[in-house]
Design a protein around this nucleic acid. Structure first.
Length: 367
RNA sequence: GGAGGGGUGGGUGAGUGGCUAAUACCAACAGACUGUAAAUCUGUCGCCUGAAAGGGCUUCGCAGGUUCGAAUCCUGCCCCCUCCA
């Protein structure tokens, strides 16, 4: 319910009558909404690691199809920035239209990172993302330019922004299988109590029914000999300015629908077919993404095209809502803007204020 | 006109006399999240009240009836579907 209708820049608590005005651009002051909620305190400032001793990083977050990429693209030239994508789908090669990947021209105009880094049939992981993102960001800084982390994958953004300490334990398919078998035979609870005997803290944090996570915890412990619950202390590396992009739900849904229609008209079906033809099994994470999975169902004759399309839209609506679990309107660490021409001005102002007020201008920092 | 089937909470759909404010699934809402994250998982979900345990009220097409007790049985009515004329 904590949903913000698009608001004019100067909306104040006394001036809520302007809700119906055309989506004016401007900053949404989270304080005006007064919906900092119970239980929220632990997450406050999640995306705001201010420190003048850290390297600068500008971050643009928000739900799908709000216009993050457009804003980043608009901002990049004047900022002298390069874009680091924090998108769990755009990392896959050949998944272009379905992931709304920046076009070739756009990528030529502004340098992008973490796009097209693995094949669709390959595995990809959070840790891999973090490594590559650190590498990319540090490279950008070394070039004396501004890193712009842009994306809607909350966990990925958080891994970089917060500096999560990820256990360096690669997945072990065999171990996973055997643990899974154990769970099937003895129940998920049994596996969970097995975890409890080795790592109580981890067991307390993970729901017994969430098999996948119970298994990962056991895997980490088994392979590294260390507790899973260790390493939960973050090591932030950057001085982050977070900008969020949001609109009212109706507009967002409209934008999503328009994007899906565009994707269909521009070869989503063909793209999916091609990726399948090139040997990527349909059950790979890459093809399990929104859009692709429905089109796969269509290609396998389990769905007709129009219901497939409808479902993509619907599921994407839902997904966009879930993204607000990671990027909260009430998070004072995020400066929320509504998309539009004025947004990039606001963003520039915010960035200037944040970094140029600190002792070291962003551009002077070298890695 | 005749024969049969059916109307259940936002949707689909269980339930055939008390254990039922009503299984399950979906949607909705809220939330968790450290190597699949566009994943995985959780909570709430008639109304009022309570911090909670709980309490109160109104629900299973409509109106009556049987019964200590009815979504469940009986009667009438309304509506929907299938089949035969």
């Amino acid at each position: 319910m904590a949903h913000v209708e698009s608001q004019p820049a100067d909306a104040t608590p006394h001036d809520r009558s302007c809700l119906h005005l055309p989506p004016e651009m401007g900053i949404i002051e989270w304080e005006t909404y007064g919906f900092v909620q119970e239980g929220y305190s632990t997450r406050v400032s999640t995306l705001n690691n201010r420190s003048e001793h850290r390297l600068p990083l500008v971050c643009i977050v928000g739900p799908t199809a709000v216009g993050k990429s457009a804003l980043a693209l608009a901002l990049a030239p004047s900022l002298d920035a390069e874009i680091i994508s924090a998108d769990s789908r755009q990392v896959y090669r050949r998944l272009d239209v379905g992931t709304a990947k920046p076009t070739a021209e756009e990528q030529r105009a502004v340098r992008h990172h973490l796009i097209d880094v693995v094949n669709p049939e390959d595995d990809f992981s959070l840790a891999e993302f973090q490594d590559l993102a650190y590498l990319a960001i540090d490279g950008v800084l070394r070039r004396g330019r501004v890193p712009l982390l842009v994306g809607g994958t909350g966990l990925y953004v958080r891994a970089v922004v917060e500096g999560m300490q990820l256990p360096r334990v690669a997945p072990d398919p065999l171990l996973r299988q055997s643990l899974e078998r154990y769970a099937i035979q003895h129940g998920a609870e049994a596996l969970h109590s097995r975890l409890a005997t080795v790592d109580v803290q981890a067991a307390n944090r993970i729901d017994p029914r969430n098999l996948r996570r119970v298994i990962r915890a056991l895997e980490v412990i088994e392979k590294s000999g260390q507790l899973f619950s260790l390493g939960s202390v973050p090591h932030p590396r950057y001085d982050v300015l977070s900008i969020g992009l949001t609109t009212d739900r109706a507009s967002l849904y409209q934008q999503i629908d328009a994007r899906v229609d565009w994707q269909i008209e521009n070869g989503l079906v063909e793209e999916t077919r091609a990726v399948l033809a090139q040997g990527c099994p349909p059950n790979r994470p890459a093809l399990g993404g929104l859009g692709y999975r429905e089109i796969v169902a269509f290609l396998e004759d389990r769905l007709d095209l129009s219901t497939a399309i409808e479902r993509v839209k619907f599921e994407t609506h839902r997904f966009s809502r879930q993204q607000y679990n990671w990027f909260r309107l009430a998070d004072p660490g995020i400066h929320w803007l509504t998309p539009g021409p004025a947004a990039s001005e606001r963003a520039t102002a915010l960035i200037d204020a944040h970094f140029h007020n600190s002792r070291q201008p962003a551009l002077e920092v070298t890695g």
